[in-house]
Design a protein around this nucleic acid. Structure first.
Lengths: 217, 217
DNA sequence: CTCCGTTCGTTGGAAAAACAACAGACTTTT
DNA sequence: AAAAGTCTGTTGTTTTTCCAACGAACGGAG
């Protein structure tokens, strides 16, 4: 395994002597992989126990909603890491990672990074990673401009999580409105409009999103 | 140091044998403290190298803005932790912690929690903690309902960070609008209105917030 | 069964934000 | 110095949200 300059300058390896890097990478079960532009590094729904460290090129972190539309939610260049929260929290990926250019990436096993650390450190990093995911999820929905878009973002995420178009949500209307930082009655109206337009169906806390083909039956 | 049930049930100590807890707490330089209802545990602006673990009672995490108004942004009950991101990221507290009832709290040194872990683990937890703070900050502003409130929340935070009413912001108008998830022109209008009302002054990226006494001169 | 409390959808008016377009100030380039 | 481009504030119009209030549906409790 070669030690490239972007490793030593990476925040992940800050204050680690270059001489120690080789053995450290060995400990981390480091695997270097190269991707051509347009190739998938990780796909939504997969599980990973490794974080990614970009060696060269750029990767895009993207999110795909229930209806298939994509948006870039982050970039990572040389020295930057990705997927660390999912790996540490032990949760399936909610984003996909795409090579925006030809890229080389190092995948490092997080579990072995914590060996010799004791259970406490594992718990602490897991807590941080989970909080991270919780915040990211909420942010994703709240960043949308309109109540309608916030709703669709949230409901789409629930559908993806459940693995199908039908699911129950764990909040009542007021709680959901607070979570999305919108007005309850306006949200209720937006929900009604979406139902009328054939985008979704719902009864109480049970929702069903409709594929374009199913709509307007 | 007594081992109470809320310790063994805390997510922080998950999968740690109660028998090992005593020596672990010793390693962490654990300090137990008791507070009466209404007492401050930590104040905004302070630095802490310890995270807090609530043993009994409830603490409120609260935020005070530039003009002194307070709002509760979180609670922690028995077994739950607080201030961990600030301690791990090595940044000053942006919130204050208040005893909502009589409470006992354990303060654990995070640095020693990571001894024997190697620099990599330190870097990783620091990265997670910083990302956490970044997300929390952004969320804090975005959760406000109106463009005006988002602006005030952001500018107030900048003022507190700078330690005074004058500061420069590191973004142009469009970037700030994107960051707060609002319309640029609407934000510009809101800024102008705030200036007219004597709440603040600005020129380009330099801002000055006015105390109530300074306003309307 | 009736009463009561809660949740939810709906409505109407007031307020705010989004959107599009434009003009002036300032920068950088030529 | 002139030109091109960018950033910012302003305006007017349309759309959306907010807010307060109300009535229907639902689910206990007496």
């Amino acid at each position: 395994m070669e030690i490239s300059p972007c490793m030593t300058s990476s925040p992940l390896f800050r204050d680690i002597a270059p001489a120690d890097l080789a053995s450290l990478l060995d400990c981390l079960d480091a695997r270097e992989r190269a991707y051509e532009k347009g190739a998938w590094l990780l796909r939504r729904g997969e599980w990973t126990d490794r974080l990614g460290l970009v060696l060269s090129g750029t990767v895009h972190i993207l999110r795909e909603d229930f209806w298939g539309s994509r948006s870039i939610v982050g970039l990572a260049g040389p020295g930057e890491i990705f997927a660390e929260s999912y790996a540490l929290a032990g949760e399936p990926l909610e984003v996909s990672v795409l090579a925006a250019s030809d890229a080389r990436v190092l995948f490092l096993r997080v579990e072995t990074a914590l060996t010799g650390c004791g259970q406490l450190t594992r718990n602490l990093t897991a807590l941080l990673a989970e909080k991270n995911l919780t915040l990211t999820r909420k942010m994703r929905h709240m960043a949308r401009r309109t109540t309608r878009e916030k709703l669709l973002s949230y409901l789409s995420a629930q559908a993806l999580r459940s693995g199908g178009p039908e699911f129950d949500i764990p909040m009542d209307r007021q709680q959901l409105a607070d979570y999305l930082a919108v007005d309850r009655s306006a949200m209720s109206a937006a929900l009604g409009k979406l139902r009328d337009e054939g985008v979704l169906e719902f009864r109480k806390n049970h929702f069903r999103l409709l594929e374009p083909g199913e709509q307007d039956l």
